Simulated assay, not measured.
Amino acid sequence: MNIEKSNIANLPTKHGNFRIRAYKENHQEHLAIMSENFEEIETPYVRVHSECLTGDALGSLKCDCQAQLNLALEFIAREGGLVIYHRQEGRNIGLLNKVNAYALQDQGRNTIEANLELGFKEDERDYSIVEEIFKDLKLTNIKLITNNPSKIEYIESINVGVEERIPAITELNKHNIHYVETKKKHMGHLF
């Protein structure tokens, strides 16, 4: 895998002060957002956050993505660790297809049914860049902030120990309750 990486830069945010490094694989660019004390932590808290432009940037209420990202950034700023901003929009079906999936959801499909109807698997994400970022940052044991058992399985499969799972529980609303229930019921998410 041919990975390009940036220098490390400072990033002050409303959540706290971070240091960031970008990683480029093919056409996708990902971000490691580290607490200022990241290198001093033996077993850091880590969140692998999958990109969601509609939620993260636009504040969509159809999902819990922005709330989970904010929760993770605030937690990492306070406790120390890392957020990997994993740029694979819409479970890696891309923004155009994600909007098409939204249109199918408007007609009553859940997120999985919409992806399948568009000819995709329920989840097309590839986490291989996460392994490269972990290697670059010399991570061997972490405390993972996630509800997704697939992320736990993947991380353990690359010989990184998950010493603890911290749930990423956020408030539900009338627009995302069906979305969260689908993740719980059909994808095994842990709430």
Rank of each mutant, 00 (worst) to 15 (best):
I3R: 02
S6A: 01
N7C: 09
N7V: 15
I8T: 13
A9H: 10
P12E: 03
T13K: 04
T13D: 13
K14F: 06
G16K: 01
N17D: 07
F18W: 04
R19V: 13
R21T: 14
R21H: 06
A22L: 12
A22E: 03
Y23K: 00
E25I: 06
Q28L: 14
E29T: 12
H30K: 02
H30T: 07
L31S: 03
I33G: 02
I33T: 05
M34H: 01
M34W: 00
N37M: 04
F38R: 05
E40Q: 15
P44L: 00
P44M: 02
V46A: 03
V48I: 10
C52T: 03
T54F: 11
G55W: 07
D56T: 13
A57M: 15
S60I: 11
C63W: 09
D64T: 05
C65D: 08
C65G: 14
Q66R: 14
A67M: 09
N70G: 13
N70F: 12
L71A: 12
L71G: 04
L73E: 13
E79P: 15
L82Y: 07
V83S: 02
Y85P: 11
H86Y: 09
E89K: 06
E89C: 08
G90Y: 04
G90N: 05
I93P: 01
G94I: 07
L95M: 14
L95Q: 08
N100D: 15
A101W: 07
Q105T: 08
D106Q: 09
N110F: 05
N110C: 08
T111D: 08
T111G: 00
I112W: 07
E113S: 02
A114W: 05
L118Y: 08
L118F: 14
G119R: 08
G119H: 08
G119M: 11
F120Y: 02
F120P: 01
F120A: 00
D123K: 04
S128N: 12
S128K: 13
E131A: 02
F134W: 11
D136G: 09
L137G: 04
L137C: 07
K138Y: 15
L139E: 09
L139M: 13
L139P: 11
T140K: 15
K143Q: 05
T146D: 00
T146S: 03
S150V: 15
K151Y: 10
E153R: 09
E153N: 14
Y154M: 00
Y154H: 11
Y154R: 05
Y154P: 13
I155A: 04
N159G: 09
N159E: 05
V160Q: 08
E163M: 14
P167S: 10
P167T: 05
K174H: 15
H175F: 11
H175R: 11
N176R: 01
H178K: 11
Y179S: 04
Y179M: 03
E181T: 14
E181V: 08
T182E: 08
T182M: 02
K185N: 12
H186N: 07
H186Y: 13
H186K: 06
M187P: 15
G188H: 10
H189W: 01
H189G: 07
L190P: 10
